[in-house]
Amino acid sequence: MTRVRYVEWGTIIGAAILFAYIGIASWFTVSQFEAQAQEADITIEVRARQFAWEFIYPDGTRSAELRVKAGQTVKLELISEDVIHSLYIRDFGLKKDVVPGQVNVLTFTPMKPGEYVIQCAEFCGSGHSNMLAKLIVE
């Protein structure tokens, strides 16, 4: 084998090992997300429409901002009233599409109190960039 062949096979095998690691790590991370949804402390319904978010708490109160407590596992049930939206909390690196006709679930456990931004990440029409909401962790 020439030197180039060693480099070539080295790269192929190296990349394959790296990719296998990323694959396995991703599998476990996402499975953990899915398992988390089973043991949520609070379930909040999210209604998305052009171009606003509405959060409905278990006691029936409705709000334009999402208020949760630090350390509590929050399960969001995402419902769209018109087109596809996507709930994106950039500081948590989390995103889930809000698709008409299905209820998607997004689970997270905020640890640090503070104010965060919720953005719509799926193009939904002329007001897409104004479809923002506040997430307040107390």
């Binding site: 991703s26 991370t29 996402v30 997300f33 996507s86 994106y88 950039r90 690196g93 989390l94 995103k95 889930k96 990440a121 799926e122």
Partner: peptide, 9 residues
């Protein structure tokens, strides 16, 4: 996939 949750769109 978990990285894409942040980067998608």
């Amino acid at each position: 996939i978990p990285v894409d949750f942040h980067l998608q769109d």
